[in-house]
Amino acid sequence: MNPPDDTTRLGHFLGPHGVSGGVKVYVLGDPAQLLELPRVWVEGRGWLRVRRADPLAPGVALHLAGIITREGAEALRGANVYAADADLPPLEEGEYYYHELRGLPVYGAAGERLGEVADVQDAGHQDLLVVTHAAGEGFLPLQAPYVEVRLNAQGRPEAVALTDEAPAGLLGEEEGEA
């Protein structure tokens, strides 16, 4: 069962928290984003209502409808957790969610269009943009000073651009083509 469109992966379940069905979440990004969610989409289960969310350094403990025992929480271990993009809390000006990068054009340092962002993946120590381009698909590290996310007048992402400091070949192009 694949997650619905217009959802963003928040992290994955680590295991039980307590004896009454709480489950710890390894959170990608800011754990505070999970505290007010009305529901989450759980891999293998579908949409579940959030009964309660407790801050738990470094993540969050979720109490979900239908999960009331430690064994029920244990069964969720390793499952990915998603939120509907529309349910995510608003951000401060100039900040953005990674799902807002999907579909944006990617430009080279000289302004040429290189491709489009298909997705963002957590690669542990660094996030990667999955970029579709003329030669197929490639990964682009979402890392300053090589990549800049350009914002529009409303402070929302409108494009991704490589900077002059980006090494040649980040998307697999030959050095002479860049």
Rank of each mutant, 00 (worst) to 15 (best):
N2R: 13
N2G: 06
N2W: 07
T8Y: 11
T8G: 11
R9C: 11
R9T: 10
L10T: 06
L10W: 02
L10S: 04
G11E: 04
L14K: 15
G15A: 02
P16L: 07
S20G: 05
G21D: 01
G21P: 02
Y26C: 13
Y26N: 15
V27P: 09
L28V: 09
D30H: 12
P31H: 07
Q33T: 09
L34S: 09
L34G: 05
L35N: 10
E36H: 11
R39K: 04
R39E: 03
R39V: 01
V42I: 07
G44D: 03
R45W: 04
G46K: 12
W47G: 10
V50E: 02
P55S: 00
A57T: 14
P58R: 09
G59D: 02
A65K: 13
I68V: 12
T69R: 08
R70H: 15
G72H: 09
A73V: 00
L76I: 01
N80P: 15
A84W: 14
A84I: 00
L88C: 00
P89D: 10
L91K: 06
E95I: 10
Y97T: 08
Y98C: 10
H99A: 04
H99D: 06
H99F: 12
R102C: 12
G103L: 09
G103A: 10
G103C: 07
L104G: 03
L104P: 08
G108I: 00
G108F: 03
E112A: 04
E112M: 00
L114Q: 06
G115W: 08
E116N: 12
E116H: 15
A118M: 11
A118W: 07
Q121T: 07
A123T: 08
H125A: 03
H125L: 06
D127H: 13
D127N: 11
L128V: 08
V130D: 09
A134T: 15
G136L: 01
L140P: 00
L142D: 00
Q143V: 12
R150V: 10
L151Q: 06
N152Q: 10
A153Q: 12
Q154F: 01
G155A: 09
R156K: 13
E158L: 05
V160Y: 06
V160R: 07
A161D: 06
L162T: 00
D164V: 12
E165R: 15
P167D: 10
P167Q: 09
A168I: 04
A168S: 13
E175G: 07
G176H: 15
A178P: 02
